[in-house]
């Protein structure tokens, strides 16, 4: 395993306008990590607003683990199998996980599931160790809409820093999920 690089802080952004709900990310992730059965580490929700009006609008909203800075799953994990790494990734150490499932209902983003094949909790790992091999996460690599942007937000030259800067410069809407919960998520939503 690659140890965490303290100088980095990994994050992801979804450019919501570019997501077409093709679900390629879901399957790429499933293939990369051999996720069993009916589970996925990332999902796409469909937002229809308003429900029925003359001018219907529909948005596709990906989600996965937010790698929270103040992660409830880390707080409640009795074994410290769920932990926050120095590079910002919230990871699960499968060797320590007893499979108590407590972290699953603790996550306000419903990002976790129980991996029945391994008997442990499972969720997005930001594709560790893939990202240390110079690759993008599997979901980012495959995304035909180029809706997903990933990188180190400490590095102003990273794709994600550029995307966030671009969004700020152009005054796009940028938000994270449920700021009110104090979890300090690291996945940004960008919408024109």
């Amino acid at each position: 395993m690659y140890s965490a690089d303290k100088t980095k802080k990994f994050a992801m952004a979804y450019i919501v306008d570019r997501c077409v709900d093709c679900k390629a990310c879901m399957v790429a992730c499933k293939a990369e990590w051999q996720i069993p059965d009916n589970d996925f580490r990332t999902h796409i929700d469909t937002g229809i607003a308003p429900a029925a009006t003359e001018r219907l609008s529909m948005h596709f909203l990906p989600h996965q683990c937010n790698h929270c800075d103040d992660a409830p799953c880390v707080t409640v994990c009795p074994t410290k199998a769920s932990h926050k790494r120095a590079d910002g990734v919230v990871d699960i150490d499968n060797r320590k996980c007893v499979g108590c499932r407590y972290c699953i209902p603790s996550c306000p983003y419903n990002a976790r599931f129980f991996n029945n094949q391994l008997g442990v909790a499972d969720k997005c790992t930001f594709c560790l160790p893939r990202i240390y091999d110079g690759l993008m996460p599997a979901c980012v690599t495959t995304c035909p809409g180029r809706a997903r942007v990933f990188g180190d937000i400490n590095d102003p030259e990273s794709e994600i820093s550029k995307a966030l800067k671009d969004a700020a410069d152009n005054r796009y809407r940028v938000w994270t999920l449920r700021k009110d919960l104090g979890t300090e998520p690291n996945i940004y939503y960008i919408q024109k």
Partner: peptide
């Protein structure tokens, strides 16, 4: 679960 996306009416497909 508490809703992730408060800004939209969610329909899960």
């Amino acid at each position: 679960y508490t809703q992730k996306f408060t800004d939209y009416i969610m329909i899960h497909y």
